[in-house]
Structures are given as structure tokens and as C-alpha cells.
């Protein structure tokens, strides 16, 4: 067997051995087991975090049910609810405490752009003012199905990181 002369490899070798860059393998591992950080602010947290983890819309069939309370151990920050100016400093601090690689999902219209409270004197118009957001899930509150769809899009983004830039 002489691969340098472009002889075709035997079929067992094709089937059993895969060559890929290390990053792609790590991405597969990361995408199938994202650990969300347990961090609910307002009404969307009841639907997005608790309803999605509940028995009917089961997030654990995708592998994402491990909700870690400590930011050091989490991958994904799910911002669900309205952000106020009093809460903004510690949200930023939690984001900075998370270790790389990390992603963010903004759930609900308050986290996307301020929602129905955008005219208020104390509401930050969207999570994107503070931290870089990867996936937006609109709704007020969005159904748990929509939140699962958001997680699956994030999985797609993790597996193909160049999709967005292209």
C-alpha cells in the first residue's frame, strides 16, 4: 500500500479512520453538550429555562439540561428577561467570568431590544448593548419550542463557525 502514489486506500481504512483538524473534533464535542448557565431575570425565564427543562419540552434529549449555577463551569449564557441599569454591571461581570469558548442566546423581546419597556428610564435596550449575542429568539414570551429552536441554531453555529462570516 503506497499512498504517496495515489493508490486508493482499502475500504476498511476509509471507514475506520477519519482525519480532521482538532478544532472540528472539539466543536462536535462542544455542540452536543452545551451547558447553560442558570440565570433567569423575568417572565421569559419561566418559559425558557423552566418550561424548556420541564417534562413536555425536554431539553435533556439534546444534552443541554445541565444547568450550572457557577459561571466558571458554564458555556452558554441564556439572557431571558429585562435588563435594568441596576442589574447591568453584574451581568457584565458574570459574562467576563465565564471561560472561553462561550456563547450567548438572547431570549424574548426584552433581551433583544428592550421589549415593551423600552421607553422606561431604567431599562437597557437589549443585551447586545452589554455583551456579544449569538442567537436571538423573539417572542413575549417565546414558546419553549422556539427556545429549543434557538439552541439548535446555536449548535449549527458551533459546528460551522464560518457560516456567519461567509
Amino acid at each position: 500500500m503506497d499512498l504517496k502514489n495515489n493508490e486508493p486506500a482499502p475500504s476498511e481504512l476509509n471507514r475506520l479512520v477519519h482525519l480532521a483538524p482538532l478544532e472540528k473534533v472539539l466543536n462536535i464535542a462542544r455542540a452536543h453538550s452545551l451547558w447553560p448557565m442558570q440565570f433567569g431575570l423575568a417572565c421569559c425565564a419561566i418559559e425558557a429555562l423552566m418550561g424548556t427543562n420541564g417534562p413536555r419540552y425536554d431539553l435533556s434529549r439534546f444534552g443541554y439540561e445541565v444547568m450550572r449555577t457557577s459561571p466558571r463551569q458554564a458555556d452558554v449564557m441564556v439572557v431571558a428577561g429585562t435588563i435594568t441599569y441596576k442589574a447591568a454591571p453584574f451581568i457584565l461581570r458574570l459574562w467576563e467570568q465565564m471561560s472561553e469558548p462561550k456563547w450567548c442566546i438572547a431570549v424574548g423581546s426584552c433581551a433583544i431590544s428592550g421589549g415593551p419597556f423600552v421607553d422606561s428610564y431604567y431599562v437597557v435596550p437589549g443585551a447586545k448593548e452589554l455583551i456579544p449575542v449569538d442567537v436571538y429568539v423573539p417572542g413575549c414570551p417565546p414558546r419553549p419550542d422556539a427556545v429549543i429552536d434557538g439552541f439548535l441554531r446555536l449548535k449549527n453555529k458551533v459546528l460551522n463557525p464560518k457560516v456567519v462570516e461567509g
Partner: peptide
Amino acid sequence: LDDSFKGYPLRKDFQWVGGR
């Protein structure tokens, strides 16, 4: 409100800029 907030929001002459 947080301790460094200036002003009293529910007064009728309170001026603020919303996020819209």
C-alpha cells in the same frame, strides 16, 4: 433604584431619555 440615581422618577417634571 440604585444609590447613585439622581432625581425622583415619578415627579411630573422628571426628564429622561428612553431607549427607543
